[in-house]
Simulated assay, not measured.
Amino acid sequence: MTVIPVIDLMQGQVVRGVGGHRSAYRPIVSRLCAGSEPVAVARALCAHCAASQLYVADLDALQGQAWQTDALRALLSALPDVELWLDGGFAEAADVLRLRAALGPSAERVVPVFGSESLASVEALTECFGSASPGEAILSLDRRGARRLDPAGCWDAVAQWPRRVIVMTLERVGSAAGPDLEVLSSLQAQAPLTQFIGAGGIRDQADLDRAREAGATAWLVASALHDGRLSRLPG
């Protein structure tokens, strides 16, 4: 089981995600580092997890504002051996190409995450994960409770899913409610060759063990790391 640390960026700071209610997010308070400056927080998380991947949610972009390109450039420069999995509210493949052009050469280490809440259409879904897609992109199947956040119909387009799919349970983000393994298992039954990555709800090592036994290949984690509920992880 791979733990992929997460930072949520809002107005140039790392904030604490709680339940997906982004208007209520506040600057992170962490046992791993002081302050909420993105590079400091990212370095502390990656060192704690011996991580070679960092998930970044650009909450400004997800709420219809401009990408936080300065913060993203700083992260890429400070973490030369880390791959950034970036959810930047991408509505179509062309959005990723525009962002990569703005970020410069280091953008080759940006892996785009296309969230079902952001993709504009079925046509955009096909383009993002077709032969002309911008690199080996990741799909995030987003939901809050029983409601799928999915205007493009991603959840039902199993044939269009890429090799890696994130199962994003927004109401469990920062909630310490435990991982939702039932949905993960149902998706695995539909696409047994897909690598599923969970998000939300991890409280401790026991939860990670349960997630691994349920078939998750990795899990996105933030709060349990910042709160000290997951000890330093081996490389």
Rank of each mutant, 00 (worst) to 15 (best):
G178F: 08
F129N: 02
P192G: 09
G115A: 07
I138Q: 11
E136R: 13
G178T: 09
T126F: 13
D204L: 00
S131G: 05
E127Y: 01
P179N: 02
S186M: 08
R144A: 13
L149S: 06
D204T: 00
Q160P: 02
S186G: 03
R212I: 00
T169D: 13
E127H: 10
A189T: 13
I166K: 09
L193A: 15
Q190C: 12
V173H: 12
R203K: 11
A189R: 12
P192K: 12
D207L: 11
P134E: 05
W155E: 09
L141T: 08
A191S: 13
V173W: 07
A199N: 06
W155G: 05
G130P: 08
D209C: 06
G130N: 03
T126I: 10
T126N: 14
E123V: 11
A152W: 02
Q190F: 01
F114A: 03
T126P: 01
A211F: 01
E213L: 12
S185P: 01
R203Q: 06
I166C: 13
R172E: 04
S185M: 12
F196E: 06
Q190D: 08
M168N: 04
G201Y: 04
A191V: 05
G215D: 05
S140G: 14
V173Q: 10
S186W: 03
R203N: 05
A124W: 01
A214N: 04
V122H: 15
D156R: 08
R210Q: 11
S175D: 12
G201E: 01
D209Q: 15
A137H: 10
L119P: 00
G145M: 11
I138A: 10
L149M: 15
V183H: 10
R203P: 02
E213T: 13
A214Y: 04
A176P: 00
S186Y: 03
R148T: 06
R203L: 04
P162V: 03
E213H: 10
A120S: 14
D180R: 08
A191L: 04
A211W: 00
A146N: 14
A124Q: 02
E117G: 11
P134C: 11
G201R: 01
Q160C: 15
S175F: 06
I197H: 09
